[in-house]
Design a protein around this nucleic acid. Structure first.
Lengths: 193, 193
DNA sequence: CTTTTATTTGACTACTTGGTCAAGAATGAA
DNA sequence: TTCATTCTTGACCAAGTAGTCAAATAAAAG
């Protein structure tokens, strides 16, 4: 057949995603990508058409990785309130203080605005699937009486999802993990019955 | 003395601020600025050292304009809950559906991350002053019993401020004014006694 | 009018960007 | 071995960037 590819495309994609996550789309140059992946420009082009496609693939990868982590953490929790707490904790990545990157989806949402269709589709998909998970936990809590029924599960889910988005922004702008978790704990406390 | 300046520097700064607000710092080129202001590059340089200084001045202008609008709107409202509603409404600019820009401060916060000291100072100043206004209204509500005292005024203020930040993000990513106000109304409803 | 000073103007520099090209290299099939 | 195919490599390109330079211009003071 033909000459086999020398690099691992999945690994390279993952590395590119990390770079985009750290620097954003526009601020990431091909030099950054080749430095991180050790793969030359033209070779990346062979697999991913161009920077934009590479970025879209990175977004999808990020989304799937995150949602699957989220699902696992929810499955580990028994009570609905604990599930909500787990969702909030998972939303924050501030393990490495020095490398504050926030959430790739949120960062991208603000970098691109609402203009780009493909990008928006990725973002909305991630948002909606997270919202659905939150709403399910809330419904569970409402059924057992630990979460207020003064407002609908949808309204409460939007409230918490919005709070998490705000928290991801705080994260990016340098707030400490404790500060952020404090705000999120308030958000949960407010919806408990 | 010398040749007088032909353009209005305050007006030009305002126009530059609008461009930065729409496009962000990095995506704004000098061509964009000269097109909007009708002032040539070198003339802008005469007043503002460089793009960065121009941007910092724009941030300060935006901050002061917004905070003064906010103060006026708060002063017009009598009840604390109405004040909080006014703060939420003022936070959203989506009058022109076609031109979704979100909030310059929030956009900047995410564009720069936490790395840039001067930028961060501007952002924190705006955030804190808004938070203070919110907390004052909340304290008023707690005093008259319309707002819950289950949590401290500071915790509640951080909750609402965070919700507003989330809302500004929703705005930028294209949500409708009604969707956003819905979420903010929930945020207020949750803290009422 | 002449001098002084600051503004305006457009050409220019040095650099970076995403993307392309073409030649060489490596593989398996015939 | 030869061939077809695909990967790799580095040179290359056109466009765009922030910022600089120097000459021309305009006004006011002497």
């Amino acid at each position: 057949m033909s000459r086999p590819r020398e690099f691992d495309a999945d690994l390279a994609l993952h590395q590119c995603m990390e770079v985009f996550w750290t620097k954003g789309f526009h601020a990431t140059s091909y030099e950054d990508l080749t430095r991180s992946t050790q793969v030359k420009k033209q070779s990346l082009y062979g697999v991913f058409k161009n920077k934009r496609e590479l970025f879209l693939k990175s977004l999808a990868l990020y989304r799937e990785e995150n949602l699957s982590i989220l699902e696992k953490r929810i499955a580990n929790e028994t009570s609905p309130v604990r599930q909500l707490e787990a969702i909030c904790e998972t939303a924050l990545y501030a393990d490495d203080e020095a490398r504050i990157r926030g959430c790739l989806i949120i960062n991208t949402s603000l970098e691109f605005g609402s203009g780009d269709e493909d990008i928006n589709r990725e973002i909305i998909q991630m948002m909606q699937r997270t919202e659905t998970m939150i709403e399910q936990a809330i419904r569970g809590g409402q059924a057992e009486g630990t979460i207020t029924s003064r407002l609908s599960s949808r309204e409460l889910a939007l409230h918490l999802s919005n709070a998490i988005n705000g928290a991801k922004m705080m994260e990016k702008s340098g707030a400490s993990r404790e500060e952020i978790l404090g705000v999120l704990r308030t958000s949960i406390a407010l919806i408990q019955a």
